[in-house]
Computed example of a mutant assay.
Amino acid sequence: MRGKGKFALVTGAGSGVGRAVALALAGEGYAVALAGRRLDALEETASLAGAEARTLPVSTDVSNPDSVNALFERLRAEFGRLDLLFNNAGMNAPGVLVEDLPAEKWLEIVGVNLNGSFFCAQAAFRMMKEQSPQGGRIINNGSISAHAPRPDSAPYTATKHAITGLTKSLSLDGRKYDIAVGQVDIGNAATPMTQRMQRGVKQADGRVEVEPTMDVANVGTAVCYMASLPLDANVPFLTVMANKMPFIGRG
């Protein structure tokens, strides 16, 4: 078990990609802190990990720096160190015309997707810098939207492009502390967020088409691979996607 004796934090661990990655890391022997807004969902993830797994559910609002600081205080008290942060918590807006998007929704998405990722990474830097042995790994959840947008997705796409810039900047800043920073860009993993793809989603030319999806467990496998590398090696960007989804070329 490659993660035995190591400690991880997964944000947005109550469902979807976050849950799949948390379960994969627990299966590799990591002790995993599970962060998210709904404690009941985090406790369900912990239950799915099994009685032998060491998990720590912590109700957290990543868009609130005080809540993030409280989360990391729990980590220090319970784990003593942090080897891996999977910065996953995120949300999307209903597909509405950009001119009809409420300002409150824009601010909410930026608050969770971008600000939350920064607050967690900043706290992880502080902890990884101070611990002995020094260092650790941060993996940000980007999205294929970090490369190419869907129609009517300005807030989500803008934040995911920003995550790419954050990943690059943190990767440079982390080198002096042996903190390796990378990003996984995911396309059409089967989660509650992608259920609409079974009914059809708007394409760039306005058509509505059903899109293939893949088992979300593949994302867990990809993240575990990135996490398995020694800190003198890094995967800056990894894309894992449903093979037949419309992304490469014209789909």
Rank of each mutant, 00 (worst) to 15 (best):
G80Y: 04
L34H: 01
S63K: 11
S63L: 04
E52F: 13
V62P: 08
R74N: 12
G12C: 00
A89T: 06
G16F: 08
F86G: 03
L48G: 11
Y30H: 05
F72C: 01
A49W: 01
L42Y: 08
V32N: 00
L56P: 01
L71K: 07
E73C: 14
R76Q: 09
V32M: 03
T60N: 09
D61I: 07
D61K: 13
V58Y: 10
S63P: 06
L23Y: 07
A49V: 03
L85D: 02
A46K: 11
A46V: 05
A20K: 06
G80K: 00
L42A: 05
S67C: 09
E43H: 04
A53Q: 10
D61L: 12
A77S: 15
R54G: 05
A89Q: 02
D40M: 07
A89S: 07
A93W: 14
A20V: 01
L39P: 12
A33F: 00
A20T: 01
A22H: 02
R19M: 13
D61F: 12
A41E: 13
P65T: 08
N87L: 12
N92P: 15
L25S: 02
R76W: 13
D83C: 08
T55V: 09
N64V: 11
V32A: 01
G36R: 06
E78N: 10
L42F: 03
V17I: 14
L39F: 10
T11Y: 04
A51N: 15
E44N: 11
A41D: 14
E28N: 09
D40T: 07
F86L: 06
D40W: 06
L84A: 07
P57A: 08
L23I: 06
T11F: 02
D40R: 03
D66F: 15
G27S: 08
R74E: 13
G12E: 00
E43C: 03
T45G: 10
P57Q: 08
G50M: 09
V68W: 10
L82P: 05
R37Y: 07
G29P: 09
A70Y: 08
P57D: 08
G14N: 03
V68P: 12
V21M: 00
G95L: 15
R38Q: 11
P65S: 09
T60W: 11
E43D: 06
L9R: 00
E44V: 14
R19P: 04
G80F: 01
A26W: 11
D66H: 15
A49Q: 03
G27Y: 07
A70G: 12
A89F: 10
A8M: 00
F72E: 04
S15T: 13
L56C: 07
L84V: 13
L25G: 00
D61E: 14
A51C: 13
A33H: 02
T60R: 03
N87D: 12
T60I: 09
A53Y: 10
F72T: 04
A22Y: 02
G90I: 08
R81T: 10
L48Q: 14
A93P: 15
R74M: 07
L84W: 04
G50V: 08
F79P: 10
